[in-house]
Nucleic acid binder design. Structure first.
Lengths: 114, 114
DNA sequence: CTGTATCCACGAGGATACTG
DNA sequence: CAGTATCCTCGTGGATACAG
């Protein structure tokens, strides 16, 4: 953690809060990982996560769409189907997810695994 | 976001969940930033954040201590006082916080600021 | 100053069933 | 398949007061 003096403390807190508002919560990043891993259909995503239920998934997908992180496309063929894809903007979260993943791996070794 | 195939999807999700369990929530990282910015006393931290209240702060500090991210030291002078400091382990979160901060700054420009 | 004690509101998240 | 509709639990977070 970089040291900072008292005055620029809030200048660090605000953007972190902004970021957390988007990605915090139990499922947001998990869903993004699932979609970017090749799951594009509602039931696919649901199954890949396992413990989430339809209502919660639907809500989270809406949130992610509002934040421009995923795109929902309805294909009007028959049968109609819906596809979720990550947006180019979502790729900007790549480094965040990588760091979280690395840290999570290490944390499990260091703390949880004791 | 790095592409991954279906099979290693959960191998990415689990550590991210571990990380989020620790740092997610409204205040955890904010408190860490405050402490590492030079606020070491309970009321200092409270004031630097502004909108948090004593009960919530006390609980979050306990959580952070359990996760070995901060250290609580009681100085038995008179008057007695308590000091919170970040642990060396907390510095491993540095990159995570940096990425979150950078992303949050950009996100505000890109999305919120529209 | 450093918290605890109450009491409380609200929303996230969940179980189950159901619709088009 | 892609969601909605209900109903519910529980934790987070908060207001206010107070204790050591």
């Amino acid at each position: 953690m970089s040291k900072a003096n008292h005055t620029d403390c809030s200048s660090a807190m605000l953007p972190v809060r902004d970021a957390l508002d988007v990605i915090s919560g139990k499922w947001k990043l998990i869903i993004l990982i699932s979609i970017s891993s090749g799951n594009h259909r509602f039931r696919e995503i649901e199954r890949s996560i396992g413990k989430i239920n339809s209502k919660v998934l639907a809500k989270e997908l809406k949130d992610l769409e509002e934040h421009k992180l995923i795109k929902r496309t309805v294909y009007d063929e028959s049968p109609v189907f819906v596809e979720y894809t990550t947006t180019p903007y979502a790729t900007t979260l790549g480094k965040v997810i990588k760091e979280l993943r690395d840290w999570g791996l290490n944390h499990r070794k260091e703390i949880i695994g004791k």
